[in-house]
Nucleic acid binder design. Structure first.
Lengths: 194, 194
DNA sequence: AAATGATGTTAAACTAGATTAACATTTTAC
DNA sequence: GTAAAATGTTAATCTAGTTTAACATCATTT
């Protein structure tokens, strides 16, 4: 179990002693998912947070018309979870499905809460992570309202060149809130523009 | 300075001793804004968080076409701030303007950070607040993608009947990501439907 | 009570993006 | 290496929501 990238990630926010690191790691479980497998299925209660070591997953919602809406791509050094379901323990509205073979370090919400009690400064880590996630979520709402489909794609591509390469185009269209046909049109226009 | 509603709000998340409450209150400043006044202006660095005691403010972004996009309505027992600017100390992309005479309890980010150091369990409060805010922000993104304009309005009205009454209709349209003319059309259709 | 500004309505013309459907290309599995 | 599945493209048609513009109503000030 390679825990370096998790410890490295955490060290950007807080300093942990060797003992604290040991406590943290004692709560963690390594798991490997094959492409296509679900980390979470809509309707199930979310029990875990996953730190992605390697691979890629999509978290998405299926609406009442059966349409898939991608909320996030989860890649290396990101977290995959449904926070809403995790804290309420209500059934989730989201699926999290691996679109590549994906290796994660996971811990349960209970372990996360007891971790916070044993190592109070972990609270600060989670607070800082949540701050950043909230800011980026709010900014996304603004972009969805104020940018055209083309502008949204260009922004996405600029901010996430690696995801743009890595993920099928129809999923990017879903993430950006447009149809795959329209994104295809946008891309062919962009080539003509050059 | 009436601090009951703030203390009551906090008590839903954590228990503070009398001394801790005193420390908290020592960092807080009461302020009254008149209708039309700005708590924050786009381009300024956000220095404070405001807990709303009474009144209502809108936080909004003005895009490059000059269009206003309302991010949130801030009413009693909510917070008004631009977290992104507050944590980065970069110029804000948002305005927060009072649409009623508004009374707030405010504290600076520095005071908030030192508060967290003096009373570590405040970290938990902020974490829990952020968790809820992030969940609701993510759910809003999903709604914006998966619901029609009419459905978004009906959901808003159901969840926020008091804001629907209290705030001019054209601002609600902006918050919901549609034009005021289209919201007007939706509402007249809804009356016919009955 | 008249005037001004803010808010809300209606309707016609328009458009960004969706839908449908047929086809092309790439990847995967056997 | 070929069939099947997954992904991407193109184009015609359609529609949810925007734009524009004129008018109506309500609230506030003098």
């Amino acid at each position: 179990m390679n825990t370096d990238s998790l410890l490295n990630y955490i060290s950007k926010y807080i300093d942990l002693t060797e003992e604290e690191q040991a406590i943290l790691l004692s709560k963690i479980k390594y798991r490997k998912y094959q492409k296509g497998q679900y980390i979470l299925q809509q309707g199930d209660v979310c029990k875990i947070s996953c730190f992605i070591l390697k691979g890629c997953a999509k978290s998405y919602h299926i609406d009442k018309e059966g349409q898939e809406h991608i909320i996030n791509f989860c890649i290396e050094d990101w977290w995959a979870s449904d926070l809403g379901s995790l804290i309420s323990q209500d059934p989730s509205d989201f699926n999290i499905q691996c679109i590549e073979t994906t290796e994660v370090l996971q811990f349960t919400y209970n372990d996360q809460e007891s971790l916070v009690n044993e190592i109070p400064k972990m609270e600060r880590l989670f607070r800082k992570m949540l701050e950043r996630a909230l800011v980026s979520s709010q900014k996304r709402i603004v972009r969805n309202f104020s940018l055209t489909a083309k502008e949204r794609y260009l922004y996405f591509k600029e901010q996430n060149p690696s995801i743009d390469q890595r993920v099928p185009q129809y999923m990017i269209a879903s993430y950006l809130g447009m149809t795959k046909e329209f994104l295809s049109k946008i891309k062919s226009q962009l080539i003509l523009d050059q």
